[in-house]
Amino acid sequence: MKIVGWLVRILPFAYMVIIWNLSSMPDDAVIELPSSSFDRFVKESLHLVEFAILYILFVFAFLTTDRFTVKSNLFCLVIAGIYGIIDEIHQSFVPYRSATIIDGVKDITGVSVAYYFVYQAYFKNRFTRFAKLLKAFKEVFL
Results as ranks from 00 to 15, higher is better:
G5Y: 01
A114N: 05
S112L: 14
M25N: 10
F68L: 15
E50S: 12
F137I: 10
F141Q: 03
C76L: 04
K2Q: 13
I18R: 01
A52L: 10
S23P: 06
I18G: 01
G84W: 08
K43D: 03
F60L: 14
K2A: 07
L48G: 14
A14H: 00
V70N: 13
I102W: 14
M25Y: 07
G84H: 06
F93D: 02
N73S: 14
E139H: 09
L22P: 11
E88L: 06
L11C: 08
F58S: 04
A121S: 15
G84F: 07
F117W: 00
Y116R: 11
S36D: 13
Y15S: 00
I31M: 15
K2R: 13
F62I: 07
D87M: 02
M1L: 15
T64S: 03
K135C: 00
S35E: 12
I31K: 13
K2C: 05
V78L: 14
L54R: 06
P26S: 14
E139W: 10
N73P: 04
H47A: 07
S112K: 05
F62T: 06
G110F: 13
S92M: 09
D107F: 11
L54V: 04
P95C: 03
R40D: 12
F60N: 02
E88M: 04
L63C: 00
V78D: 03
S23R: 04
M16F: 01
I108Q: 13
A114M: 10
L63E: 02
E44M: 03
L7A: 09
D39C: 03
G81E: 04
E88W: 06
A52G: 14
F75I: 11
T128K: 15
H47T: 10
F60C: 10
I82L: 13
T100W: 02
P95G: 05
I56S: 12
R129G: 15
